[in-house]
Design a protein around this nucleic acid. Structure first.
Lengths: 205, 205
DNA sequence: AATATTATTTACCAATTGGTAAGTTAAACT
DNA sequence: AGTTTAACTTACCAATTGGTAAATAATATT
């Protein structure tokens, strides 16, 4: 693609933008500030990404790639039915803790009407459709309880996004690296998914 | 207080600002736009609130008052121990559903480092201290399980704030007024609180 | 070596923003 | 009626912002 690039400038810009969008938000992020922090002129940013929104979209795309790759890994495993769901949930939590910036970006961009929400939707739609279809086929063969797949997926999604707020609030309150609340959230999410989806759960109880 | 005021201008400004801060965020809110929408000059806003941040603080304060009054109501009841906790949780959810703007503002202002987070903290600290003390005294007399009160309160808080995201995400996905996920969240929160605090819960199970 | 292309910079700008200063209107007090 | 004070407006501004246009530097391509 790029023939020559001084020193991965484009990547550096993406990194810095991710940090700023994730922690300060889109509107509070200034191209001048990013440029200055990188020792680069603002026009370099605009050269690579066209507009500020273009930069945001690029950041969102890279983050989504990151996420989708992780999901892909689980989907390529041979886990079936409920076990696959649980593996997905655990993977998402692992990813969220490993890359908090990604989580922050997701929250920033999840607000409907925000600058990046449209792009996020476009990127997530295929994933959502695929998940919905898979869940429906699992329901057909009785490996999964009958529910509204989209509702379940979106609730799980917002649980993860809510995690971003929780971590930050706890940190701001001086409770550093509180793993317990995160663990609790994960357990709650898995239980929620299990109640909604696992056909064997209620029987075994 | 105010001797004469044309038509409740101050209140109208606060209403409009709450709406904008809550849905678009602080940075994306323009004083000019608010003023124009109200048929008032921008300087009128600045006359009443000094600065933009002053306006935000006023909005936050009014919202906090709203919240604190509701809490006060429950605290003045004769409910003890676990029952009081559950009443609080139900009240918060009721309030959140009745006044979604309040919820949106809370989310906007909960991000550490945001313009309003400091004021929010100042307003919430007495509430937090009071709650902590009460819970500790309840623990002393054995009406409540021993845990870290601040951690429990903050986790509950972020659950409620996360609700804002969830409602908006679901709405954006075309799932209007989905009461089920909200009910589920409430049930989850109450169960979380129960497991953490109710000394009789595990016995009765 | 000459040329084309990519990457980055310098120079500018129009629009918006929050904010200041000073004036004007209107109500309240005396 | 005259004065004070509160509410609001007109006029203006400095700073920042995202963005355009053109020049320059660096690297491939031929």
């Amino acid at each position: 693609m790029e023939k020559y690039e001084k020193f991965g400038t484009k990547e550096k810009i993406l990194d810095s933008a991710l940090e700023s969008f994730s922690t300060s938000g889109f509107d509070a992020t200034s191209l001048d500030v990013i440029a200055k922090s990188l020792g680069v002129r603002k026009q370099t940013i605009l050269y690579h990404f066209g507009t500020k929104k273009g930069l945001l979209n690029a950041v969102v795309e890279r983050a989504a790639e990151n996420l989708i790759n992780s999901i892909e890994e689980v989907l390529n495993s041979e886990l079936k039915g409920w076990e696959r769901i649980e593996a997905l949930a655990r993977m998402i939590f692992r990813l969220a803790l490993r890359e908090p910036l990604l989580l922050g970006l997701l929250r920033e961009v999840s607000r409907p009407g925000s600058a990046g929400s449209e792009r996020l939707r476009i990127l997530m739609t295929p994933l959502m459709d695929r998940g919905t279809l898979w869940m429906q086929s699992e329901m057909e063969v009785g490996r999964m309880r009958r529910t509204n797949p989209r509702l379940v997926i979106l609730s799980a999604y917002s649980t993860v996004v809510g995690l971003a707020t929780e971590i930050e609030v706890l940190r701001a309150a001086g409770i550093e690296q509180a793993l317990r609340p995160v663990t609790i959230r994960r357990r709650e999410l898995i239980r929620f998914l299990r109640v909604s989806l696992d056909p064997d759960y209620l029987k075994s109880k």
